[in-house]
Simulated scan of single mutants.
Amino acid sequence: MQLNQLTERDNYFEDFTVGEVMKHVRSKTLEPLEQVLITNMVMNTASGHFDEEVMKSHPMGRRLSFGGVNIAMFVGLASQDTAENAIAELGMDKIRLQGPVFHGDTLTAYTEVLEVGPAEREDAGVVRFKHYGTKQDGSIVFEGERTVLMKRRSHWGAR
């Protein structure tokens, strides 16, 4: 298994191989402002995300990050390596939020290439990724699979 620690510029369909694992070069500390702003924007009003006093008596002891924000952060961290040459997002499934994320946690994303195959159009192929994410203590807090229609270098790349 190869661990890629550099963000690549040109990830076309032909560049992905089954079994390849990438550690995405950028991590992101989840700031309370962005967590609360995005959670408000999607109309999630659960007190677990907003009410510090209520959460003091909860087993978690403090406010939790909204899982939708966590998913978006991990997929976003993986995007430069897995979406720069995407034509279309075909699906996301098998999403699992496996542990709590709190304001101030630093998130890191990893991707494994699960499958590469043909598409209905000759200028693209289909790539299925497994994304997973950790926080600063190394615990896995997110897993999910994503299927992407990816440009072929042979049709779209610099000649």
Score class of each variant (00 low, 15 high):
30 L>C: 13
46 A>P: 01
43 M>Y: 13
101 V>H: 06
75 V>K: 11
147 T>R: 07
57 S>K: 04
41 M>P: 01
51 D>W: 09
37 L>R: 11
45 T>R: 13
16 F>I: 03
94 K>W: 02
140 I>E: 14
46 A>Q: 04
101 V>F: 08
109 A>G: 04
47 S>C: 06
39 T>V: 12
36 V>W: 03
47 S>P: 00
143 E>Q: 02
105 D>H: 12
76 G>V: 04
31 E>I: 07
120 E>N: 15
95 I>E: 03
83 A>F: 11
34 E>I: 11
132 Y>T: 02
140 I>H: 05
102 F>V: 09
121 R>E: 10
21 V>T: 10
89 E>F: 13
154 S>T: 10
49 H>A: 07
73 M>K: 10
82 T>A: 02
152 R>E: 03
32 P>R: 14
65 S>C: 13
156 W>H: 14
122 E>I: 09
73 M>N: 14
29 T>F: 00
44 N>M: 08
49 H>G: 01
69 V>R: 03
95 I>S: 02
64 L>Q: 05
51 D>H: 09
100 P>G: 11
50 F>Q: 05
77 L>F: 04
123 D>T: 14
71 I>S: 15
84 E>S: 14
122 E>Q: 14
37 L>W: 13
100 P>H: 08
37 L>T: 13
130 K>R: 15
92 M>K: 02
43 M>I: 08
114 L>P: 06
66 F>I: 08
18 V>M: 12
125 G>Q: 13
109 A>K: 03
21 V>S: 01
87 I>E: 05
59 P>F: 13
115 E>D: 15
53 E>F: 06
128 R>Y: 00
147 T>C: 02
144 G>L: 06
133 G>N: 00
18 V>T: 10
108 T>E: 11
150 M>P: 00
53 E>T: 12
17 T>W: 07
113 V>I: 14
87 I>W: 04
134 T>G: 06
102 F>D: 07
143 E>Y: 06
62 R>S: 10
107 L>K: 01
125 G>P: 12
40 N>M: 09
